[in-house]
Nucleic acid binder design. Structure first.
Lengths: 213, 213
DNA sequence: TTGACAACATACCGGGTAGTATGTTCATCA
DNA sequence: TGATGAACATACTACCCGGTATGTTGTCAA
């Protein structure tokens, strides 16, 4: 049961702006999105946005950070779970994948933000913000990394290089941000079926010993 | 044995420009890359580029198409392979993954081009070029899709939805374009080890019955 | 040797956009 | 009730970049 964007946001006015920004960034990418685009989607003008955010880069950074905040909040309940390790990983992966689908605009911003940070060819002002996003995201990734590392020690997972395995796992779990779109008559069962396939693919890929069928 | 960019290109002058453009597009993305950036990398000026390409979009499209050309050429030899189906898939996947690593700048352009095409928020002039790239790329994807579909019928693969399985498979096989970087003292054996892990992950993810260890 | 053309370089223009400076409205509170 | 400031809208500027128009150099053929 992940959080909706609005529920998670304390400030409603900001949530409006952030949602519109996230949608624009998802549809056109950071560079191709103008502040006027975001304002137009809000039915407002630049003034409103620049009143709350000093620069476009700050707005983007806020969208990214909000996306990661939601991810952290979503998996927090199962982190200290005392369940079987493979079961814990499955819960985490399921929650994560669902998160990718339900908050897709924010997660695509995170993806692009990480790409921008890794390229590193930006001005020093937004450089720091993007680096912080990268650290924030790596911290999140480490949570999964530790689980699959322990899983390998316990013999429930089987892979060679931990870094590569983690990358491949996240590529699979994150992939819905690229190809998932909510269909008109889509039910909760449909979504669960998609999530199950993604999680199963990743688990098998990691050499998981038990089938999550 | 994949083709190098220069070997594959018939026109040398064009290869210079395309390589420089691919590197720029990889480092900064399409929108953030100016024609002057590409020219500067070439040690030239805009004039040289605009003499050969009518617009920035055409240059980008050519880079993408070149990337796909190389992919098609690389897997062509094993398409009609009479080997065991899982073996054939493994060869194709291995070649594809190696291709992602060796021609990474071009493949990242392809990735961004597909993203741009799917977003569809571009002017009608480059719209047609991007749509053609999309078809070109889908044709390539269908080659793999048919193999894993047949594999499922023969019982060597096991997955639910064919479309989702194909997406997940390509996410894994393509992933090196995001995280792979050639290390200083890297050997051919190192590269093969990486490729093997990627291919193994994808094969297991697809429910492949035999281990490629 | 000269005309013609390819292959560039140089100089310039125009549109789009981030950011700013300046209104304007409305609620709140002394 | 008037002053104050938040929350915007409006109007404007400066800059970057795609594209073009024009100049320059070398080559090659007749």
């Amino acid at each position: 049961m992940t959080l909706s964007v609005r529920e998670f946001m304390p400030d409603i006015a900001h949530a409006d702006i952030l949602e519109a920004a996230a949608l624009c960034f998802m549809e056109r990418g950071y560079n191709a999105t103008s502040i006027d685009d975001v304002a137009r989607r809000l039915g407002a003008t630049k003034g409103r946005i620049y009143h709350h955010y000093p620069a476009k880069a700050d707005l983007f950074a806020k969208v990214c950070r909000t996306g990661m905040d939601m991810n952290y909040a979503a998996i927090e309940p199962v982190r200290g779970d005392s369940a079987d390790l493979l079961e814990r990983w499955t819960r985490m992966a399921t929650i994560h994948t669902r998160q990718m689908m339900e908050t897709r605009p924010f997660q695509r911003a995170v993806w692009e933000g990480v790409e921008l940070a890794l390229r590193g060819s930006t001005t020093s002002s937004q450089r720091e913000e993007l680096d912080e996003l990268l650290r924030y995201r790596n911290g999140y990734g480490d949570i999964f990394r530790e689980v699959i590392a322990q899983g390998r020690r316990e013999g429930v997972f089987d892979f060679e290089d931990l870094g590569i395995a983690n990358q491949l796992m996240f590529m699979a779990l994150n992939s819905p941000i690229f190809w998932y779109t909510k269909r008109p008559g889509e039910t909760e069962a449909d979504r669960e079926k998609i999530i199950r396939q993604v999680v199963t693919f990743a688990m098998r890929g990691l050499g998981g010993k038990r089938q999550t069928q």
